[in-house]
């Protein structure tokens, strides 16, 4: 399982943070940070991302 973010595309809007059911995502100065120990690779962050910056492989 893989979680990838394209930092060139990401606008740091935080939409993914608000939908993450396990709170593994955080919006930091440097951008979106994912705590892969918490992540369940459910893919809702990929679904909501307005710019298609997140890819989740299951």
């Amino acid at each position: 399982m893989k979680w990838k973010i394209d930092r060139e595309k990401c606008i740091k809007c935080g939409a993914c943070v608000g939908v993450c059911p396990v709170m593994s995502l955080e919006l930091k100065d440097e951008g979106i940070v994912n705590d892969l120990k918490k992540c369940i690779f459910c893919g809702v962050c990929e679904k909501v991302c307005p710019v298609g910056a997140i890819k989740v492989e299951r």
């Binding site: 935080g14 943070v17 939908v19 991302c49």
Partner: peptide, 25 residues
């Protein structure tokens, strides 16, 4: 804001359901 980090860190479940969130650009 939409991240709702503070409420959730405090233990209140404010997580958005995908069906109730629009993606805006």
């Amino acid at each position: 804001g939409v991240e709702s980090t503070v409420a959730r860190k405090a233990g209140l479940n404010t997580t958005n359901k995908l069906i109730n969130i629009d993606s805006g650009f």
